[in-house]
């Protein structure tokens, strides 16, 4: 579905992503873990053209993405959920959801609203459709952001640390929505620090350090039988008790 081949991205002299290859197949739930600053966010941002890779190739459904041109339309069927939500503060929840389908997708307003209401119900926020983002809690904002991504009828949704900016008691509600998506067969790729989620929901876990994919495998392989010293050290530091 999405196939990134030998992707690299530098910021000045820092190699954020260093020759990473990642193939996301239909139905997979991939969790990307690793220490802060390891390049995992940059990697997932490259998959949506939010960062333009310096080298390497990106294929979506077998088609090569040409980053010298505007890729917005081409990649609009890939959903993206940001760490800081990035909802549009001057638009209501419903407008946040329908803007893309109406303006970019050419969907009639009535149909877009109907779809948006269904998706709001799916994330449990039916009563908030006329609220503005500033009136919502962090967890609610992120659920709106997930519904907004779903409005693009995405083939895959990419998540960039979706729970890192949330208060602890709100993390669960967002992870639950994500788990339900996974259970429904949606393809997900999630950069996360939630090891419990990765272990329970992921079909594949990828460990990134210093811009490189160090190790990948099933949750059992990664969490119970890590091979590299770097991953063993990382796990010993993040998993307490």
């Amino acid at each position: 579905m999405i196939n990134a081949v030998h992707i690299s991205k530098h910021f000045g002299s820092i190699k954020a992503v260093d020759d990473c290859s990642l193939h996301i197949r239909k139905g997979e739930v991939i969790c990307i873990i690793g220490p802060s600053g390891s390049g995992k966010s940059t990697l997932i941002r490259c998959l949506h053209g939010l960062e333009i890779p310096d080298s390497g190739e990106l294929y979506v459904n077998g088609k090569k993405i040409d980053f010298t041109r505007d890729t917005t339309k081409e990649l609009s069927h890939i959903g993206f959920v940001f760490q800081l939500f990035n909802l549009f503060p001057h638009k209501t929840v419903l407008e946040n959801l329908t803007l893309g389908p109406i303006k970019a997708g050419g969907v009639p307003e009535k149909d877009a609203v109907e779809t948006a209401r269904k998706l709001l119900a799916r994330v449990g926020l039916t009563d908030k459709e006329n609220a503005y983002p500033a009136q919502l809690s962090g967890g609610q904002k992120q659920r709106v952001a997930i519904a907004r991504a779903l409005c693009q009828s995405p083939e895959v949704i990419l998540f960039d640390e979706p729970t890192s900016a949330l208060d602890p008691e709100m993390i669960g509600e967002v992870l639950n929505v994500m788990k339900e998506l996974a259970d429904d067969g949606m393809t997900l790729a999630v950069v996360t620090h939630e090891m419990g989620f990765a272990r329970k929901v992921a079909t594949r876990v990828i460990f990134v350090d210093n811009g490189k994919i160090v190790e990948e495998g099933t949750p059992d392989q990664i969490f119970d039988n890590p091979q590299s010293d770097r991953l063993k050290l990382f796990l010993s530091q993040v998993i307490h008790m």
Binding site: H48, D70, F80, F88, G100, A104, Q152
Partner: peptide, 11 residues
């Protein structure tokens, strides 16, 4: 805001 707009397909 630019990035979010890009991901929902806005020019």
């Amino acid at each position: 805001q630019w990035e979010a707009a890009q991901t929902i397909g806005l020019s």
